[in-house]
Design a binder for these strands. Structure first.
Lengths: 236, 236
DNA sequence: CGGTACGTTGAGTCATATCAACCATAGTGG
DNA sequence: CCACTATGGTTGATATGACTCAACGTACCG
């Protein structure tokens, strides 16, 4: 009956992480989550939930990377954001009491805690710092969404691709050899930028010619971050 | 010393409106807002606040229409949303404690209540239903932003223009003669859709040729809503 | 060894942006 | 009352970024 190789992590970790919303919970509240939550593991390609689903809880990512995307009219994915350890997903649907407006799929094998909706609602009702923290989170994401809308509407694909690479660097970091710490297919990159796969390929190899990046399959090595920033028109 | 012709409205109205976030406030809380708020009037073209400003409160719209937009790299506006009576704006910045990520400009002469940040924060802390309601609002807007991102990234300008017209109809309604109840310049339309003014002009006159709309200056009369929906690929 | 998913490259097309000229309207000031 | 100016709307010509389609290469997997 031993289904998991890994021990179920306690949420104490999440609750201590700076940046995680759980840091405003009391000891008792963390214990309650630990008691009520369900631990789950998923492999690359697996789906946590689908657009349109009624959601019965939200997820806190413990390990791995998840992409959150929306399926457009013709079936093309638009990646909205990524979730990495410490991030929560699906809270939007729970709180707005709407069905999921996005789907979530695993990019890198992951471990998550699934926490029932009632817990989230209860915490919002009883712990006002936590509610405030969630509001901050939602409002912050809203600000990012606004920026993204403006970018997609106004920038060229070239600018957007450069910008997305920068954002990925900031979110996931580089290893010792300056390789981006998240590996995406060209199609996935295209689905963030909002363009065709072939366009990403062509632009990436342009960036390569211009000595901005080095490509090794899905691994992207950043050679000239400043140069990319300049192309992306990120500042001013 | 009589500066305003209109009597200062009490927020009781706002607090009773269905859909407005204030409906979960107690009598005392509404009274507090009435006491602390500042009543302001603005004419078309005036600016409530600018991108980058530190915001010391949020606005509740009592009358008129306001556009909320972001200024892109080359100075082009991207309209993010409109606010009409009952809506609140700038709450995002207050709650996330960031400076304004958008600007707000009057489209149609308006009256607003300006409510200091502290009040909002205090209400979030003391009234958990109100906090929950705000969370619902923010999460709902987040869902809309996600849809918009997907649309801009994947749909053609033609589809988006049709969709925006539908959305405006749903938000602002039609008068007895089916004229859209908000009047925007072609440039403003372009700045919602994310395209060039000339493209909007050309597409609008195509829609006119196709008997979908009738144009009379800035007034748009809807002749065939179903037809526009079909073009926009809103459903399915 | 075939199959499937991903990556790459080239050629052709089209939607949309850009540039430029022009018209209409309304407000301003002499 | 009339230039004068600003703002917005329209149209045409032209350029081009980006998409589509198609073919082919590559790699991993059972």
């Amino acid at each position: 009956m031993k289904q998991y190789e890994v021990p179920i992590p306690f949420c104490d970790k999440c609750s201590m992480e700076t940046g995680a919303i759980f840091r405003h919970l009391t000891r008792d509240e963390v214990d309650m989550i630990n008691f009520e939550k369900e631990f789950r593991q998923y492999k690359r390609g697996e789906i946590l939930y689908n657009e349109g689903n009624r959601i019965s809880g939200f997820y806190c990512v413990n390990k791995g990377i998840i992409k959150v995307f929306k399926t457009g009219f013709d079936g093309k994915e638009q990646i909205i954001r990524f979730a990495k350890p410490g991030d929560i997903i699906a809270y939007r649907s729970v709180l707005s009491n709407e069905s999921a407006c996005t789907s979530a799929k695993v990019i890198e094998d992951c471990q998550v805690c699934f926490i029932p909706s009632e817990i989230l609602i209860k915490l919002v009702k009883t712990n006002s710092s936590f509610a405030h923290e969630l509001l901050k989170l939602a409002c912050h994401e809203l600000g990012e969404a606004n920026s993204f809308i403006t970018d997609i509407a106004q920038k060229t694909v070239r600018e957007r691709l450069a910008e997305i690479i920068i954002l990925l660097v900031n979110d996931f970091g580089l290893d010792e050899q300056n390789f981006l710490q998240i590996s995406l297919t060209r199609e996935e990159l295209a689905n963030i930028v909002g363009t065709a796969t072939e366009s990403v390929i062509r632009l990436l190899s342009e960036f390569k010619s211009d000595k901005l990046v080095e490509l090794n399959g899905r691994k992207i090595r950043i050679l000239n971050k400043k140069g990319l920033e300049k192309i992306s028109n990120v500042f001013s």
